[in-house]
């Protein structure tokens, strides 16, 4: 177990290093006007060269890469160029982190609270109305582009429930809709897999034996099926973290939540290279961390998993 954790941790660190390097190298491919912001047109060639040299962008690539990585290790993400010129990026991002974290965690919690019972009900009434309704929901959410789902939820739910359309820190009612939107995909995922795992368990021999013993249906469900179906559910946690990240980018921007996802969309639209670079790195860190925790958690929960092999349906 310990060896596995260490190995998995090393793997995550390698991924992180590779990613940081790749992001850095790819950003060099961007047009250089991205480093100037407003007023690029008024500069002549000499001024541009001078400014680039001063920023260290004319040094040999390996030198730049080393400087960039060592800065990263010290937690220096560089300075924003266009969005808020010359402000350190960590300063821009710091106040936005809590929003993203709270919304992300709330969304995961809510999707667990809604998704798991939904899956249980679907398995319990397999082939009947609750199952069909649930399956319809799963197909709808998984097939229709999330972007479209979010827009329609925002448009119609807000007017039906008479809650504000946009996020407002001082009105807790306006927090409901974004969290709901972010949980949409995860609820479908949890419900679908919970149902599948429970149906798998229901067809096992030991369930037939329990029936033969005269065990009541509800007892079989709670004592046997539910418990065994929970174990493989652990491997969904990393997926749901990734889903939440990608959902948050869209939802935060749509509901104008002052979080990191909304910031990323802003930075992309205004072509702020360093800010995009920093945010992409942060989001990947969260993703990599989420996968790492999920894998370790899975290994802890399920004694049957061989520790040196990766498995699971992701």
């Amino acid at each position: 177990m310990f060896a596995y954790t260490i190995k998995r941790l090393l793997q995550s660190l390698v991924t992180l290093a590779v990613l940081a390097t790749a992001v850095f190298l790819m950003m060099r491919l961007m047009p250089e006007e991205g480093y100037f912001g407003e007023g690029f047109d008024r500069l002549d060639q000499v001024q541009i060269e001078a400014a680039l040299t001063q920023m260290g962008l004319r040094d040999p690539l390996p030198t730049q890469l080393c400087r960039y990585l060592s800065n990263l290790l010290r937690g220096d993400l560089g300075r924003s160029i266009v969005f808020r010129p010359q402000v350190p990026i960590s300063e821009i991002i710091a106040p936005k982190i809590p929003y993203s974290v709270y919304f992300g965690l709330a969304s995961i919690a809510i999707s667990l609270i809604i998704g798991l019972p939904m899956g249980v009900m679907m398995a319990r009434f397999k082939g009947r109305t609750p199952d069909l309704l649930g399956s319809g929901y799963v197909v709808l959410v998984k097939a229709v582009a999330p972007a479209v789902c979010y827009i329609f939820l925002q448009l119609y739910l807000s007017s039906w429930l008479r809650i504000p359309m946009l996020f407002n820190v001082r009105r807790p009612l306006s927090w409901i809709l974004p969290v709901l939107c972010m949980s949409l995909g995860n609820v479908a995922n949890y419900a679908m897999w919970m149902r599948r795992y429970m149906v798998d368990e229901l067809n096992r021999d030991y369930i037939r034996f329990a029936r033969a013993k005269g065990m009541s249906n509800s007892k079989i469900m709670t004592r046997h099926v539910l418990r065994n179906a929970f174990v493989p559910m652990a491997q969904l946690l990393p997926t749901s973290i990734l889903l939440t990240i990608s959902g948050s980018i869209y939802v935060e921007s749509l509901f104008s939540i002052p979080g990191m996802g909304g910031l990323l969309v802003n930075a992309i639209q205004r072509q702020d290279n360093t800010l995009v670079q920093a945010l992409v790195l942060i989001f990947s860190c969260v993703g990599i961390l989420g996968l790492f925790l999920g894998d370790v958690f899975m290994a802890m929960v399920d004694p049957r998993i061989k520790l040196d092999k990766r498995s699971g349906a992701r």
Binding site: Q11, T15, V18, S246, G287, L291, R314
Partner: peptide
């Protein structure tokens, strides 16, 4: 290594 990076990113 690659699979750890979120697809959206």
């Amino acid at each position: 290594v690659v699979q750890n990076i979120p697809e959206t990113i």
